[in-house]
Amino acid sequence: MNHPLWHERRGHPFIRFARLQLIFALGEQRVYLKWIGKLMLPIEKGDTGLTGNYYLGLDEFEDMSFAIHLLRQDDIFIDVGSNLGSYSLLASGVAKANSFAIEPVPATYDRLIQNIGVNFLGNKISAQCLALSTPSNSSNGIKGTSNNQQIAEVLKT
């Protein structure tokens, strides 16, 4: 294991992996695990991004640590394709930036909203169930519905 956070304790992520797998094998559907600072990870079986963050601390170490160290309080962070919100949670929960989390998949968006709520970051993270595109991906951008809301048509200006 060459992850920078576990240089001195290389076995620790494997212990975390075994612990979480045992919890799920015993029938738990969701667990709330401490992450960084006061952030919590509400993890369900199959949440690969969140589980990676639990096992390793920062699953995408270089990118995530860059965001944490670059952003300052009240900066604006735009998280396109936010999935369950790992980057938005870090940007707003650790760096205290204001985040816009954009997730197009309705079920994933619902979980994103839950993750923001569990971490009491509703005042720092604005989430939208929205698909973004450029005109090159579609002659008129993307149109559709999600959660009975119209998905915005995004055109290059």
Rank of each mutant, 00 (worst) to 15 (best):
residue 88 S to M: 04
residue 153 E to Y: 05
residue 148 N to C: 09
residue 149 Q to P: 08
residue 60 E to F: 11
residue 110 D to S: 03
residue 58 L to H: 13
residue 66 F to D: 15
residue 86 S to A: 10
residue 35 W to S: 09
residue 154 V to G: 10
residue 29 Q to Y: 06
residue 35 W to K: 01
residue 152 A to D: 10
residue 138 S to D: 15
residue 25 A to M: 10
residue 6 W to M: 00
residue 47 D to P: 01
residue 128 Q to G: 09
residue 129 C to L: 03
residue 40 M to T: 15
residue 11 G to H: 10
residue 156 K to T: 14
residue 29 Q to L: 09
residue 102 I to M: 08
residue 136 S to L: 15
residue 40 M to Y: 12
residue 132 L to K: 03
residue 28 E to Q: 12
residue 144 G to A: 07
residue 79 D to M: 04
residue 75 D to V: 04
residue 131 A to I: 06
residue 27 G to D: 09
residue 63 D to N: 14
residue 93 G to K: 09
residue 57 G to R: 04
residue 35 W to I: 11
residue 121 L to I: 04
residue 151 I to N: 13
residue 112 L to M: 01
residue 155 L to T: 13
residue 29 Q to D: 10
residue 119 N to Y: 02
residue 83 N to C: 08
residue 108 T to N: 10
residue 1 M to T: 08
residue 22 L to E: 06
residue 65 S to D: 15
residue 119 N to F: 01
residue 113 I to M: 10
residue 17 F to V: 12
residue 37 G to P: 02
residue 131 A to E: 06
residue 25 A to Y: 05
residue 103 E to W: 02
residue 5 L to S: 08
residue 30 R to N: 05
residue 85 G to Y: 05
residue 80 V to H: 00
residue 105 V to G: 01
residue 19 R to M: 07
residue 55 Y to P: 05
residue 33 L to Q: 12
residue 1 M to N: 11
residue 57 G to S: 07
residue 57 G to W: 12
residue 86 S to R: 04
residue 106 P to H: 09
residue 39 L to M: 10
residue 94 V to M: 12
residue 115 N to I: 01
residue 74 D to H: 05
residue 1 M to D: 11
residue 30 R to I: 03
residue 21 Q to L: 14
residue 112 L to Q: 05
residue 133 S to D: 05
residue 67 A to F: 13
residue 76 I to A: 03
residue 99 S to H: 04
residue 103 E to C: 03
residue 137 N to H: 12
residue 21 Q to H: 13
